[in-house]
Amino acid sequence: MAAELEDTNRRDFLVLTANAFAAVGAASLIWPFVHQMNPDAGAQALASIEVDLAPVKEGQAITVMWRGKPVFIRNRTKDEVAAAQKVPVSELPDAEPDAKRVKAGKENWLVTVGICTHLGCIPKGQALADTKGEFGGWFCPCHGSHYDTSGRIRKGPAPRNLEVPPYEFVSDTKIKIG
């Protein structure tokens, strides 16, 4: 009897181990099939772009595509910078000082994602002839959000300021976004 019980235990352990090995293999097979849906090497290669700022004169703005989204790059005039810095932060629906949205020593350059934080339209204000809204920045025609010269929401239904993407100056006149 004792031998039989021992036998059962040993058999079960072996069976258990074998089944566990099989199950682990089956489970580890899942990861490649899940991971293949993540961005492939081609998409990852385009995850960051370099932009040459030399051709953008003071007061001018360009739009570049980054990760499928428009990015507004504006070379702000001294007046525009001053206006942005003067605004009391507490008055802002999404409180954020201008200094946090630009790079030190390069305050004239504003880089924001050009997608309204309300429902995703692309605000107007890049072209010279565009209306810039009541605060001199951008105006979203879909539901009337107004952004200031720092890309911050001042009036209208948008909840947050225009997103500042991760970027850095790789040289005096070149930035790398992403």
Binding site: R11, L14, T17, A18, N19, F21, A22
Partner: peptide
């Protein structure tokens, strides 16, 4: 390596059960 080990284990388990 994994497949060879697991096949062996399964085979031993099979013999255990069929005993």
């Amino acid at each position: 390596l994994y497949l060879i080990v697991t096949t062996l284990l399964l085979y031993l388990a099979k013999r255990r059960i069929w005993a």
